[in-house]
Structure formats: structure tokens, C-alpha cells
Write a protein that binds this DNA or RNA. Structure first.
Lengths: 203, 203
DNA sequence: TCTTGTGAATAGGTTCACAGCA
DNA sequence: TGCTGTGAACCTATTCACAAGA
């Protein structure tokens, strides 16, 4: 399989979702362009990277393309490529994320929630197992947690991120207001609302 | 002022935060490269776009650069360039975002929360005024709301987004699992945890 | 006639490498 | 010597434009 350029990968992630949520069986590059706002040539080039050759002059088969994208990016929902993740910090936001994060039909499994407040994790009701932050290292290792959602107070953000990093986490979804400074091999995505909004007006 | 390329703008948003949270007075391109993971040449080129010429052979003055970025991108926190925004959908997540979204020292003001459940908005305690979704149009117009945080259940996501769009909203921070289909002049940022995580492993 | 797939052209950013200043 | 600022080279991605298949 050809190496996929990273802008194409980003688009693929969106495309995969889009194809999963459409009711059409077939779809053309023009339709996809209208749905996504990207150029139709861009879409054709992206999909051609998958080397399917199933669309010739007929539009693409939605399910075949979707499956091919998942295969190419390793983002299928098969058991074999599930990645375990956790939520660190169970304040209002962390708790809400714990309850509302839908990882069904994604390559992720939410396997733990952590908070320093032992009282809280005893009282809280949750389908996901909760642990004191004290157990962070042991649980990350024993549960083979690869990704973390960081929802601690800003003051603890860098400290907690450092701990996560040292325990071998691969990526952090950062809800705090802090720009984290970590080894560059760790992927960080800043999803703090204010930060995202700022990006929107700057664009 | 020179036109700033959009990758530079994205970096500037991060840089602005970074400079705001550092305690240093002066900072060099090499230090910034270490903090951000970007190339030092990239950083120098970015900052040179601001045409400050204040750094010559001495490193940059943190506060001057930060202020210049805010000025260039219009992301200062002065009253004059505040943008009003709201949260639509006050489920667990919406409620948490309402309570925890810190817009202090950002160009945003959270001015409203909306939910269809009239009961809930009456009971809920919140520093931000709450309204029934019925009043969405009138409040968006009267409060001059420009941006919305979408935290409704997936089934209502597209419908709600369409309403927001028709009332003239400029951008949506989308917490739902749905890829929205809207007029391309409306900025949408997908921050759904599963979606963001998927982007991380695809990269 | 409609659509894909793709060489070739173009546009856009990044990185190099060094002149110039403190 | 240590730093920025920037032409020039390089690299990458997008878009054009059209051949070819159904």
C-alpha cells in the first residue's frame, strides 16, 4: 500500500465517519465534495490512494471505500486493533466525558477513570471502573492503556501529563487550558473549548 | 500587514497561549522549537511575518510577540473584539462545559445555554443565563451570539446545526458524533473525543 | 454522457544556509 | 559567538485537464 500523505489521512478520518452515517449505497466525488467542502479532485486523489478501482465511472461503493479507509488507517473496530484509553480527572467535565463518550464502533475502549479524590471515586456511579490517581501507573500498565483524556484542573495539567508520559502513554486529548510540554513522540490534541474557538476566528 | 498563511495562523494560536503561560521575559526560536516540536526556521519565519524586528540576535521579547500575535489574528481579549457564544444542549456534557469553560483572557464570552427541557433550565443553577431551545433564534439575534458549542444527542445534531446555521451562527464546536453537513461558510470543528482519538492513531 | 483515475502544472509551506546585527 | 531574518531551494499537496471505462 502506497504511503498516505498526512492531510489525506486527516480527511480520511472524517470521510470514514461520513460514509458510515450516510444511507446511500453509492456516492460520487461530486457528492462528497458537496458534503465535505473539499475539492472533487482532492477527493478522487484521496480515494485513489486506496487503490480500489471499484468506482470506475459509477461513483464509489460507500461500504467498500469506508472499509478500505479503516484498513488503510488501522481504525477499524475489530477487537484486534482496539486501543485502551482512560479519563484522568473526574471533575464535572471528566465525569460527563466518562458518561457520554461513545466509543461504540470506534477503535477505542474506555477502560478506566482516575481521580485523586478517593471519596469521589467510591461514591460515583459509573459503568467504567474508577481508580485513585495513586494507581495510575499500575493501572496504565496492567490495563495496557495507550491514550488518555486529560480533564484535570489547569494547575495539575503539566504535572499529570508528565506522569502519563512517563508511564508510556502514546497520546493525550487535552481538555485543559494549558499547552503541554512533552516529548514530541507523544501526540497531544488540544480540545479545550476556548482554544478551539480561538482557532476558528484566527483561521 | 502581510497576509498570514493558514498553517502559521494555527501555530500562532498555540504560540500565543504558550507565551502567555511562560514565565520567561525573553525567548529564542530554539527554545520555542523545543517547546512546540516545530522547526526553529519555521518559528523564525512565523514570527518574522509579524514584522516586529524586535528580536535581533537577542531572542524575542515574550510579551511583545504575544501581543503582536493577538493583534494580527484579532484574538485579543479587549472588549471590542469579544465574540459571544453559547452552549446548545445541556445534558451532562453541556452542563459540564457550561460550568468549566474558562473564557477568561480569551476573545470569547459565554452568554447563554440552551436546552429543550424547560424543567431542567429552571432547576439548573448556572452563572450563565439559560433558555429553552424555543428561544434559540430570538436569543441568538438579541444577544448577538456568533459561535455555538453543540452538545445535543446525536439524533438532534444535524437538525440543531441547521437551525443554528439559519440563525446566522458563524461557527460550531461540535461535540457530537455526527459529521455535520452545513454551508461551507460556517466553520465547524469536530472535538468529539472518539473522533479526536481516531485522528491521533491515523496520523 | 457521466464518472473515475492520473500525469503534469501549479500553488503553498518548510527548511536550508547564510548575511547581518548585537 | 549567538541570535534573527530571509532569499533560494526543496518538498508536498492541490488542482487542472483529459484519457479511458461503463
Amino acid at each position: 500500500m502506497k504511503q498516505i500523505p498526512s492531510p489525506s489521512k486527516k480527511r480520511f478520518v472524517t470521510l470514514a465517519r461520513l460514509l458510515a452515517q450516510t444511507s446511500q449505497k453509492k456516492i460520487t466525488s461530486v457528492e462528497l465534495a458537496a458534503l465535505t467542502g473539499w475539492g472533487e479532485a482532492t477527493i478522487r486523489r484521496d480515494i485513489s490512494l486506496l487503490e480500489l478501482h471499484n468506482g470506475v465511472s459509477n461513483g464509489y461503493d460507500v461500504e467498500i471505500v469506508r472499509a478500505a479507509i479503516c484498513a488503510a488507517l488501522n481504525i477499524g473496530e475489530e477487537k484486534s486493533l482496539k486501543h485502551n484509553c482512560c479519563i484522568v480527572g473526574l471533575g464535572k467535565l471528566g465525569e460527563a466525558l466518562l458518561a457520554s463518550s461513545s466509543f461504540t464502533s470506534t477503535p477505542f475502549e474506555l477502560v478506566a477513570g482516575f481521580d485523586t479524590n478517593v471519596n469521589k471515586i467510591e461514591i460515583m456511579k459509573s459503568a467504567v471502573p474508577l481508580f485513585p490517581t495513586l494507581d495510575l501507573e499500575s493501572k496504565i500498565r496492567s490495563l495496557k492503556i495507550e491514550y488518555a483524556v486529560l480533564a484535570v484542573p489547569d494547575e495539575k495539567a503539566q504535572f499529570m501529563a508528565d506522569r502519563l508520559a512517563s508511564y508510556g502513554i502514546k497520546g493525550i486529548v487535552n481538555y485543559t487550558n494549558v499547552i503541554l510540554n512533552l516529548d514530541k513522540k507523544i501526540r497531544v490534541e488540544n480540545v479545550n473549548t476556548a482554544f478551539v474557538l480561538t482557532g476558528m476566528i484566527a483561521e
